[in-house]
Amino acid sequence: MASFSLDDIRTAAEAKYGSTDIELGDTTIRLLNPLRLPKAARTELAQLQERMGGEDADQEELLSEAIRLVAEHPKAADKLLQAVNGDLALLAEIFDRYGRATQVGEASASRD
């Protein structure tokens, strides 16, 4: 029979479902894995992703909302969005990397 401590399980969960980290100067912005979000936030994120597929969707607005939703803290989201300054290509790349990291269960998109 195998035995695991809760700390072992926490470590494994962090490795598999950890955040996507973006370095911004001397600050690290953490975008939380959807499984680490409250249920209401996961539902809202799924709805935002559905809306992104619409023909007349405001991609900048929706991607910004998604980043605000998954950022560890509202101030972190504000700092990241201020640095991006409405650049849709940057927003899309951030969300793309976030999506790839959460799909494959990477611990982090940051350099280690």
Score class of each variant (00 low, 15 high):
residue 2 A to F: 13
residue 4 F to H: 12
residue 4 F to W: 10
residue 5 S to C: 01
residue 5 S to D: 04
residue 8 D to N: 09
residue 9 I to T: 03
residue 11 T to P: 01
residue 11 T to Y: 06
residue 12 A to C: 05
residue 13 A to S: 12
residue 16 K to C: 08
residue 20 T to P: 08
residue 20 T to R: 13
residue 20 T to M: 15
residue 21 D to T: 10
residue 22 I to R: 00
residue 23 E to L: 08
residue 23 E to S: 09
residue 23 E to F: 02
residue 25 G to S: 06
residue 27 T to G: 01
residue 28 T to L: 10
residue 28 T to E: 10
residue 29 I to T: 04
residue 30 R to P: 00
residue 30 R to C: 01
residue 31 L to C: 03
residue 32 L to P: 07
residue 34 P to H: 11
residue 34 P to F: 11
residue 35 L to P: 01
residue 36 R to Q: 14
residue 36 R to Y: 03
residue 38 P to R: 11
residue 39 K to R: 12
residue 39 K to Y: 08
residue 41 A to C: 10
residue 42 R to N: 06
residue 43 T to H: 11
residue 44 E to D: 15
residue 45 L to F: 05
residue 46 A to V: 06
residue 46 A to W: 05
residue 46 A to M: 10
residue 47 Q to F: 13
residue 47 Q to G: 15
residue 48 L to I: 12
residue 48 L to E: 07
residue 49 Q to C: 12
residue 49 Q to Y: 08
residue 51 R to I: 01
residue 52 M to P: 01
residue 53 G to K: 04
residue 53 G to S: 03
residue 54 G to E: 10
residue 55 E to K: 11
residue 56 D to L: 07
residue 56 D to M: 08
residue 56 D to Q: 10
residue 58 D to H: 04
residue 58 D to I: 07
residue 58 D to Q: 03
residue 62 L to N: 00
residue 62 L to E: 01
residue 64 S to C: 07
residue 65 E to V: 01
residue 66 A to C: 07
residue 68 R to S: 07
residue 69 L to N: 06
residue 69 L to Q: 05
residue 70 V to N: 06
residue 70 V to W: 05
residue 72 E to V: 02
residue 72 E to T: 02
residue 73 H to N: 08
residue 77 A to C: 04
residue 77 A to H: 02
residue 77 A to T: 00
residue 78 D to P: 05
residue 78 D to G: 10
residue 80 L to C: 02
residue 80 L to M: 02
residue 81 L to G: 00
residue 82 Q to I: 05
residue 83 A to N: 14
residue 85 N to A: 14
residue 86 G to L: 05
residue 91 L to C: 02
residue 92 A to L: 05
residue 92 A to I: 00
residue 92 A to T: 11
residue 93 E to D: 09
residue 95 F to C: 01
residue 96 D to Y: 07
residue 97 R to I: 13
residue 97 R to F: 15
residue 98 Y to L: 03
residue 99 G to M: 14
residue 100 R to S: 08
residue 101 A to E: 10
residue 104 V to F: 10
residue 104 V to H: 12
residue 105 G to K: 12
residue 105 G to Y: 08
residue 106 E to G: 09
residue 106 E to N: 11
residue 107 A to P: 15
residue 108 S to G: 11
residue 108 S to H: 13
residue 109 A to Q: 09
residue 110 S to D: 12
